[in-house]
């Protein structure tokens, strides 16, 4: 974990109530897809934990990737006063903790991993897909949203050459239905999922084989100190922020 100051390069609405925030600064601790950053906001006591969507290393003032400098992109949904305040910041500096959370384990992907995102939970799939492609895998992405106005990352994933299936509840784009409906029958070697709890709970009933799930919980610190975000697993009590947010499907205790 590192605390550093980032410069806001861009903060714009890219879908209904969803913003893309690009931050320039020290990205050296962001090493795995599925990790998150924790942003301090003026006037709010707790930081806002937001998962990393993508990272770009190097490139400023002739600095290479070895400089540790780069740009981290996060996507966030305005869900309360903190994110509403954040959405209004168009420039300036932010105090950010980086390198939080364990992230996805890409070594387990196999040749045809399946990436499943629900709503804003699709955000980490961008970096995940890029990393998987870099190691020679051919990922498929299934992203579920309520309607077409909420769809994110379709263009970015297509650009990477990822076969991307979009599902919307109202049928306004792609397949009509949920991510769980859309992923049936897609052949895969391993899966990675991120989204709200009801969505994770529905996809796990139709998914075959092994995979990982990324969870959300209200956090105090984001680095394991306050144990505010605990979760019971088959391997004992875990902290979503520090031992997760990604957990193997094998260790999760599902509640129906």
């Amino acid at each position: 974990m590192k605390e550093s100051i980032f410069e806001i390069l861009n903060n714009t609405e890219i879908a209904d109530n969803v913003y893309r925030l690009d931050l320039k600064g020290d990205v050296s601790e962001i090493v795995r897809p599925g990790q998150f950053i924790n942003i301090a906001l003026e006037g709010f006591f707790l930081r806002r934990p937001i998962s990393v969507s993508n990272v770009y290393r190097g490139g400023f003032d002739n600095a290479g990737p070895e400089s540790g400098q780069g740009v981290v992109t996060v996507l966030y949904k305005v869900a309360g006063k903190g994110t509403e305040y954040l959405s209004g910041l168009k420039d300036g500096m932010l105090n950010v903790l980086t390198g939080l959370g364990n992230g996805f384990d890409i070594s387990k992907a196999g040749s045809r991993p399946l990436l499943i995102g629900g709503g804003i939970g699709s955000a980490p799939m961008h970096m995940l897909a890029a990393e998987l492609i870099k190691k020679g895998a051919a990922p498929t992405a299934v992203l579920g949203f309520r309607g077409s106005r909420e769809v994110i990352l379709e263009a970015e994933l297509n650009k990477l050459g990822v076969r991307t299936v979009i599902a919307t509840m109202d049928g306004s784009k792609g397949i009509k239905g949920t991510a769980a409906d859309a992923l049936k029958g897609i052949d895969h070697t391993y899966f990675y999922a991120c989204g709200p709890m009801p969505m994770l709970n529905s996809i796990r009933k139709v998914l075959e084989g092994d995979g990982e799930y990324s969870f959300e919980e209200r956090m105090g610190c984001g680095f394991g100190a306050c144990v505010g975000c605990s979760m019971e697993t088959k391997n004992g009590v875990k902290r979503v922020c520090k031992d997760g947010p990604v957990f193997s499907g094998k260790e999760i205790i599902w509640k129906d």
């Binding site: 709010f44 006591f45 707790l46 903190g82 919980e217 209200r218 956090m219 105090g220 306050c226 505010g228 975000c229 605990s230 979760m231």
Partner: peptide, 9 residues
């Protein structure tokens, strides 16, 4: 959980 909430300061 949830077992964390926020307030002013």
């Amino acid at each position: 959980t949830p077992r964390i909430a926020e307030c002013a300061s």
